[in-house]
């Protein structure tokens, strides 16, 4: 499934990284510890987190993640957005909690 389909299905906002809206997604990873994502996330996953700083995008890029979803209505820092646009990795947002958006994403991809 493409990032753009997931945005539609889960009603997510798009903050930046629009170049990557066609990225293919085949799973998700939920974590707020960057070192954990660095060690355990896999290519083409969507990363659900509450971290909003620039290093999130550096790690998303290093791991070839498909997109990042910020929960609880959190907004990306300016430098996070800059890097998202540079890397072409969408930064998405939702008012849902991690639990809710993670559950919905799971149903969508693996349900």
């Amino acid at each position: 499934m493409k990032v753009s389909n997931i945005i539609k299905e889960l009603n997510l906002s798009v903050y930046g990284g629009d170049n990557g809206l066609d990225n293919e997604v085949d799973g998700g990873y939920v974590s707020d510890l960057l070192s954990d994502v660095m060690g355990n996330a896999e290519e083409s996953q969507i990363w659900i987190t509450l971290q909003t700083h620039r290093n999130v995008m550096a790690i998303a890029s290093l791991k070839d993640l498909a997109a990042v979803i910020l929960v609880n209505d959190l907004k990306p820092d300016e430098d996070m957005l800059e890097q998202a646009n540079e890397e072409g990795i969408p930064v998405l947002g939702t008012g849902m909690t991690t639990f809710d958006v993670g559950g919905k994403l799971y149903n969508l991809l693996k349900g």
Binding site: S35, M38, G39, S61, L62
Partner: peptide
């Protein structure tokens, strides 16, 4: 832990 640095990033 060994994670290789990517200087560009």
């Amino acid at each position: 832990p060994f994670v290789k640095n990517n200087p560009e990033l």
